[in-house]
């Protein structure tokens, strides 16, 4: 019997590693600027998924399926129930970090798209192989 939680987590991690490779390939080897930008966003999303997975906690043991962290009656919360609540909740810090990273990623993508537009206006192409005015 396959553990479903384990199965899906393994699937996500595998997909992340494959995505990482694909994104780096896309950034460095695809000639089209637009495809480079798409690969860049895939890279950013992979990093964000990685961060979210780091914050995931399985409670009370890795084998049991986790339940959502909800305080049913918060009026008579004891230290024990609060402890359980904290243990059941996911780590909130990576989510805050990912939120920041997404906003920054948006800014970078927007700027890259603007530059690509200017490149297209100047050269009439977005193929980076044909844009070789500078020697590098």
């Amino acid at each position: 019997m396959i553990d479903l939680v384990d199965y899906f987590l393994t699937l996500i991690v595998t997909a992340m590693i494959v995505n990482l490779g694909l994104a780096l390939y896309g950034i460095f080897f695809r000639p089209s600027m637009i495809k480079k930008i798409i690969a860049l966003t895939i890279l950013g999303d992979t990093a964000n998924t990685f961060a979210i997975i780091l914050g995931y906690r399985r409670w009370p043991s890795p084998k049991t399926p986790s339940r959502p962290p909800v305080l049913v009656n918060y009026t008579d919360a004891t230290p024990d129930t609060l402890k359980e609540f904290v243990g059941r909740a996911v780590d909130p810090l990576p989510q805050a970090l990912v939120l920041t990273a997404i906003v920054i990623g948006l800014a970078v993508t927007l700027f890259m798209v603007f530059l690509t537009l200017q490149i297209y206006r100047a050269y009439g192409t977005t193929d980076m192989r044909k844009i070789k005015k500078l020697k590098g």
Partner: peptide, 30 residues
């Protein structure tokens, strides 16, 4: 056109590198 080309080269590399730094940071946090 030269300025745009220089910026786009630096931009793509820099954005990739900062994302990689983010991954490194997450490993440190882990």
């Amino acid at each position: 056109p030269g300025s745009i080309e220089a910026a786009i080269k630096y931009g793509i590399l820099g954005a990739t590198a900062t994302t990689i730094y983010f991954i490194g940071l997450m490993i440190i946090y882990g």
